[in-house]
């Protein structure tokens, strides 16, 4: 996706989500909320793609940033009771922004060790940071600790979820394709050469972490106001892995691919649920022939993951050969 595509996409997406949000109350609430998950996952995957895909770092702690955003935004909006629509929008946006900013600060803290580490070491340190953030929230009694925090307002809707997804896609694309942003790709392709050419690799790495964390924080805020209940356990290592899988499946550094992967991976478990629910198939006598799928859904998911990695390691949608040197 180049910058001109990004602008068209951005405007198109905004118009589309405005139009769809007009009809939102006619959609089955299950699918409507799945669509929020899709929007949130697009934000998470595209923002992680900036860190992992474009800049070539490896973060396994994205759920930690998400947690910071979710808890900050929820703690802010919980201070308010019933509000009129305009005020609620203002409060909601302010809370999301605050969540994003605090997550960005966390991103800065995590970004600093990246100056010295790379590859697996970095992965394990970011994983550690993610876990530490989780344990900290688990012990923070003011936001409910391990018991979790009820979020009073369910303000996330189709417009906000996809509007912010569009903003994220636009900002990340615009950033990477700007003159300044070419540095991200230079850092990824050859860090030593990049620094020899006078590119401040440090600055680019930290910027990637801060911007990525900011949007993860926004996604966290949207998540909190969609599920209306958050616990530290929801932002664990498994959640980080799920986001990384979206990025890898979509193809590192391929924004369109990552968006499609985010959509597919959000729908996959629901699709498997639907298969398990099929009541009968013509020609097969037993009722619920696929009910075993509900037992083995996660086994199928992990098998698919391995098979995809083996058959298309460059991602489902990447046209380029693998990025390895």
């Amino acid at each position: 996706m180049n910058i001109r595509h990004a602008k068209t996409f951005f405007l198109g997406a905004l118009v589309l989500c405005f139009l769809v949000s007009l009809f939102a109350n006619q959609i089955n609430s299950y699918w409507l909320f799945i669509s929020y998950d899709i929007g949130i996952n697009i934000i998470l995957a595209v923002s992680l793609n900036l860190i992992n895909g474009y800049t070539g770092q490896f973060s396994l702690g994205h759920a930690g940033f998400m947690a910071v955003g979710a808890y900050t935004a929820a703690a802010i909006t919980n201070q308010f009771g019933e509000l009129n629509p305009y005020l609620s929008i203002a409060v909601f946006l302010g809370a999301l922004l605050a969540g994003g900013l605090l997550a960005a600060v966390a991103g800065l803290l995590v970004g600093i060790p990246t100056l010295r580490l790379r590859g697996d070491y970095l992965a394990i340190v970011t994983l550690g940071f993610g876990e530490i953030i989780r344990v900290v929230f688990q012990n923070m009694q003011s936001v409910g600790g391990a018991r979790g925090l009820s979020v009073m307002h369910g303000w996330t809707n189709f417009f906000w979820a996809f509007g912010f997804a569009a903003v994220t896609v636009y900002v990340v694309t615009a950033l990477v394709h700007s003159t300044y942003g070419r540095g991200f790709i230079a850092v990824r392709d050859d860090e030593v050469a990049a620094s020899a050419m006078g590119i401040s690799t440090t600055k680019y790495k930290v910027t990637a972490f801060v911007v990525g964390a900011f949007f993860a924080g926004i996604a966290g805020g949207l998540y909190a106001h969609s599920k209306q209940f958050i616990t530290p356990g929801g932002f664990n290592f498994m959640q980080s892995i799920a986001i990384v899988v979206m990025v890898i499946l979509g193809g590192m550094g391929n924004t369109i691919g990552v968006i499609i992967a985010a959509i597919l991976l959000t729908l996959l478990p629901e699709g498997l649920r639907a298969i398990a629910d099929i009541e009968h198939i013509p020609g097969i006598v037993t009722a619920h022939p696929f009910v075993w799928v509900s037992d083995t859904r996660m086994i199928i998911y992990s098998l698919l993951l391995i098979i995809l990695m083996l058959t298309r390691p460059q991602g489902l949608f990447s046209l380029r050969k693998s990025l390895s040197k």
Partner: peptide, 21 residues
Amino acid sequence: RSPKLTVLITAIGVSLLIEYT
């Protein structure tokens, strides 16, 4: 011969497969 990330994700996949199975 694949990038490390791919192998790491595969390893995570193997780990999940064993656990869920």
